[in-house]
Design a binder for these strands. Structure first.
Lengths: 218, 218
DNA sequence: ACGTGCATGTTACTAACGGTAACTCGGAGT
DNA sequence: ACTCCGAGTTACCGTTAGTAACATGCACGT
């Protein structure tokens, strides 16, 4: 059987937290990031203060929720990134993995990319300085750092590799994200075409392209 | 049609709107995107309902405000993009223009990139379907389309140029944005270094780099 | 001169939200 | 039996977006 009698007490603490997170997940998937604490509590069959006891505040709940999805997505990406294949193929597989994920669950994607407000507790005016990006999409940051690490581990671009890797990591992730966001809204082409075009961009086809008539000479 | 006497009535309508926008600008620059309608009204020396009469709702005010800054930034970028110089130099100038802008006014930048909620009027539950990206940062979209147009006009990459240009436009803008956001938060290097690294990425240095020891052969 | 219309402005309110204080209830330990 | 403690509730606070109803001033037709 289970590890003894304390199931009734202690395991239920973690288990309840899991249940609450899954209820919150359901509501967020249904209502988007505008889901209210009341709605989440109602979905879980309880009332607000319990949520606050478990997660502190709304930011805490959202952070816990985001962590789950972020971890899952990052695991997929890591798999594609670490596959034993040619570099271009790895890049394309990673792009495709990301795009497939946001295509399959746009609500989750939307939630992860807009963790809402976060700052400035109502009664207390906090941080009026610029903390740009501090509370902004943490998923993008994590993906950027992850990619930077892979680049630094695997690529040799001479001196300054470490800094270059970080710039490129965040830059490439941003490229993927923005292109995916736009593509998800307009669907101007197939996923494979998008992957190919982005890989072409990373492969220097922009620099290699010729000027059209009328442009300044190269 | 005298342009003289109706000044008292009609010009003051537009003028008042301008004044309100400038007051809102001041507050947003001071308090960030969390600025409340009350605060903005107070800064303008009036009260809330007037704001609502002029702009409909908070989204309307924010949209009008964002339009001003977006137009200004886009004008700068267009100038850098259309300069009569070599392509790489144009790219670097454009990147630098963008980064200089967000560096100079991080509050404006933060406001433009997070137009807050926007959807779901409180009393009426609206749009529960996925409208991903519909209300998301319009500045990025406009920049992406603008860049796509320039690419399509100036570059010749064979068939499919138009679609490729749009993908690249949004992709490059996303790269610039994400890298800039990260850089603004951590300041890991100078602006010039960041510009150079990003341009190198676009110039195919990622594809040209060699593998480090231990990696799968190329 | 006088009311009419209209834009401008106000006060006072509603509904919803995030968050919290204070109370209640049921079960384990001694 | 009595106490302690965690889970849960109701009822509330402060703030916010948004609105209804009331006041005021200025041009206009008659």
């Amino acid at each position: 059987m289970d590890t003894t009698q304390r199931t009734g007490q202690q395991r239920s603490a973690d288990h309840r937290r899991r249940e609450l997170l899954e209820a919150a997940d359901r509501v967020v998937l249904r209502d988007g990031p505008h889901a209210s604490m009341n709605a989440i509590a109602a979905e879980a069959g309880i009332t607000k203060p319990i949520l606050y006891r478990h997660f502190g505040d709304k930011g805490g709940l959202y952070a816990a929720l985001a962590m789950r999805h972020t971890d899952a997505l990052l695991a997929s990406l890591r798999a594609a990134l670490d596959a034993p294949a040619e570099r271009r193929q790895r890049v394309e597989a990673t792009l495709d993995t990301y795009l497939a994920a946001i295509e399959a669950r746009p609500q989750v994607y939307r939630f992860l990319m807009h963790p809402a407000d976060g700052a400035a507790t109502p009664g207390d005016q906090a941080e009026q300085g610029f903390d740009v990006g501090k509370h902004s999409a943490p998923l993008l940051r994590r993906m950027g750092e992850e990619l930077a690490q892979v680049i630094e581990e695997r690529l040799d671009v001479g001196p300054g590799t470490q800094q270059l890797a970080r710039v490129w990591g965040h830059g490439i992730v941003g490229m993927m994200h923005a292109a995916g966001d736009w593509w998800l809204g307009e669907r101007p082409c197939t996923r494979a075409e998008l992957v190919g075009s982005l890989a072409d961009l990373l492969w220097g086809r922009l620099a290699a392209a010729g000027d059209k008539a009328g442009g300044p000479g190269f």
